[in-house]
Design a protein around this nucleic acid. Structure first.
Lengths: 185, 185
DNA sequence: CATGAATCGTTCGGTGCCAAAAGATCTCGC
DNA sequence: GCGAGATCTTTTGGCACCGAACGATTCATG
């Protein structure tokens, strides 16, 4: 048995408040509970909040912006990348979207069935396949993206311009660390 | 380096470099490609980098830290929360882990089958179930967490203490926005 | 040319994960 | 007490998503 939940308070009897505020709870007093091991709590909070923010932002976007078009976050990302960058082969598309190749295949099939994207074999190298938006896909993303961006603005509420840029900058450092190859296992 | 917008037909001829650097490519020249719509690119970069960072960090953690114990990120999170906070009912656990309740059920079953956690019906309210670490689970998380924290430190490399705290702070604002209830539909 | 190595997309097996519906239990007015 | 409604968890159905294995194609080398 770990910790003493009853020590400080009855954690379980404020059930109504599990949203919007007590997500901070998990951060409180962690040091107290963990004692003085050699832990870097600042790294912990920085990294774990990334994931927490990402799932919260994603889930809400899927509910409030994407669901009306039957798009998942991943599907939306695919359309967006193709919109901004134009057609590209699947390997690059997967990398741009942050997806495994195998994952992309299935999602492309879904999008293709809905006539939002099109696959085409590359003539000069028949191993490769390029993917492009159809006109339906173009219409959809052009209609949807401004609303998605408005959602991003809403998620950034309370951040100044400087802070948004700082947030993006700090995250880029983390991304770069995570994508770096070949650490010691 | 990737990206001259002009010759984007030939994006495919620099294939080897899809890691570690050209994740920045998607950010460059977006304005040029998108024209002058009323878009807030600072919010876009801030928010989209959150997700990009989260998946990169998660995937690598699962490969390099968690896989040797057959744990997913979600499974690890459950153990960690139970470790830090002690036993709790499933609703609260789901909220702490950022999971849907239904998701938690399945993952708890997996963890329970491996004897890492235990469910127990609450006597005073038989609808509720509390979850606690078993001694095996305790052993595992106590062994694993220091290594996980070392991984978090590695992912924060290049960030000063101040920057880590700033990153966590800015993310908390985003989390709070995303968890807020009842925006206009 | 021929053949082994490299590269590319897809297939496959298995979780993770969600939303909605179902099932179980408690509560409260009457 | 008793039934309607509120609260819990679990079940269900369906994608998303990964890693490894596979088949097809291209390329390098002799």
């Amino acid at each position: 048995m770990v910790g003493h939940p009853e020590d400080n308070e009855n954690l379980t009897d404020n059930e109504g408040s599990t949203d919007g505020e007590d997500f901070l709870a998990a951060e409180r007093d962690i040091r107290k509970r963990l004692g003085d091991r050699e832990l870097d709590l600042d790294s912990l909070h920085a990294i774990s909040n990334i994931y927490r923010a990402a799932t919260a932002v994603r889930r809400r976007a899927e509910r409030e912006v994407l669901a009306q078009h039957n798009l998942s976050w991943g599907g939306f990302t695919i359309l967006w990348v193709l919109w901004v960058w134009g057609q590209m082969d699947t390997a690059r598309l997967a990398s741009e979207c942050g997806l495994a190749k195998g994952t992309l295949t299935g999602m492309l099939t879904t999008l293709e069935r809905r006539r939002l994207v099109e696959r085409e074999q590359v003539k000069t190298d028949r191993r490769k396949v390029t993917v492009a938006l159809t006109s339906d896909g173009l219409t959809l993303i052009e209609d949807l993206f401004p609303r998605f961006n408005a959602y991003e603005v809403a998620m950034s509420e309370g951040l100044s311009l400087t802070e948004k840029r700082e947030l993006a900058r700090l995250l880029r450092i983390v991304i770069s660390n995570a994508l770096q190859k070949g650490v010691r296992g």
